[in-house]
Amino acid sequence: MGAEHLEALGLKGRDFLGLADYTPDELRKLIDLGIELKRKNKANEVFHPLAGKTLGMIFEKSSTRTRVSFEVGMYQLGGHALFLSRNDLQIGRGEIISDTAGVLSRYLDGIMIRTFGHDILLELAEHASIPVINALTDHSHPCQALADYMTVLEHKGKLEGLKIAYIGDGNNMAHSLMIGGAKLGLHVAVASPEGYTPAEGVQADTRAIAAQTGGSLLVTGDAREAIEGADIVYTDVWASMGFEEEQKIREKAFAAYQVNEELARYAKPDYVFLHCLPAHRGEEVTAGVIDSKHSIIFDEAENRLHAQKAILAALL
């Protein structure tokens, strides 16, 4: 695989703001590219399509997996990653986003941003002339979802027709899993308590996509209904970053939505368990599930590196 293969993907110069912006075929090509880049890495094959390229990484939210995987990914592809916290940028001192986007576009080959408001991401992308990658907003987490479905493909050998059950907060993670699952032909079931269900607009978009791909969407308040016959079981923390002050309220609201051994019995016997991490054992998931033979959380975490390398290589 050389530069001509990456050019043939036809994604050079695109933004990666959400999975809804990509066709099912494009998403599958990115997943397949991630698997190939992972193979190259394991075989110690040098592949530097991004030699001389620089990625600016803007972090308004702290991170372990996102920073390390993007920084290592750029290094493995022959490029350079530049960490930029809010305190490193004039955005933190009042510079408007459009000016920051214009300036960074003259210095960098791509921008990755991990922030709170989705509107910040969209405004940055609107004014930047280089690719912008969504490394997480309060609305979506597309890089994680791409890595998740890459991991499922490795373990199950297929994606289309599988059932994924997401149990918990209808947050940014749920949104990206829903859209990505529908795009890739999965049956998505989400169980959340009242007041914490996924955004109505995302539900509508997911159903519209699923109608074209043969997938489906179920949103319910019943965790058992969602997990029944699931091939993939997924959960996330009950209080995401920025909602820590709601921890006690959410613990009460989500008490019936813990993924434990009793609930997991309703999934298929060979189900796989995923969690985007960090996890709070004893809250959203028991140690008996997350540390069981069903859990593939570290394969999933590793694939953040390779899936994001696919995005970087294809776009930059």
Rank of each mutant, 00 (worst) to 15 (best):
M1G: 11
G18R: 14
D25M: 10
D32M: 07
E36H: 08
K38C: 09
P49T: 02
I58C: 07
K61V: 08
F70T: 06
G73I: 00
Q76H: 12
G79M: 00
L84S: 01
N87D: 15
V103I: 15
D109G: 12
M112I: 12
I113K: 00
G117N: 13
G117M: 12
I120G: 00
A125C: 11
A128V: 09
I133S: 04
A135F: 08
C143Y: 05
C143W: 02
Q144G: 10
L146E: 02
M150R: 01
E160F: 06
G161E: 08
L162V: 07
L162D: 02
Y166E: 02
I167Y: 10
L177P: 10
I179V: 15
G180N: 08
K183C: 00
L184P: 06
G185Q: 12
V190I: 15
T197S: 11
Q203D: 00
A210S: 11
A211R: 12
S216W: 04
A226D: 01
A226N: 03
D231I: 05
V233P: 09
Y234E: 12
T235N: 12
F243W: 13
E245L: 06
I249M: 09
R250P: 09
V259S: 05
H275F: 05
H280R: 14
T286N: 07
I290L: 14
D291K: 08
I297Q: 11
L316Y: 03
L316V: 13
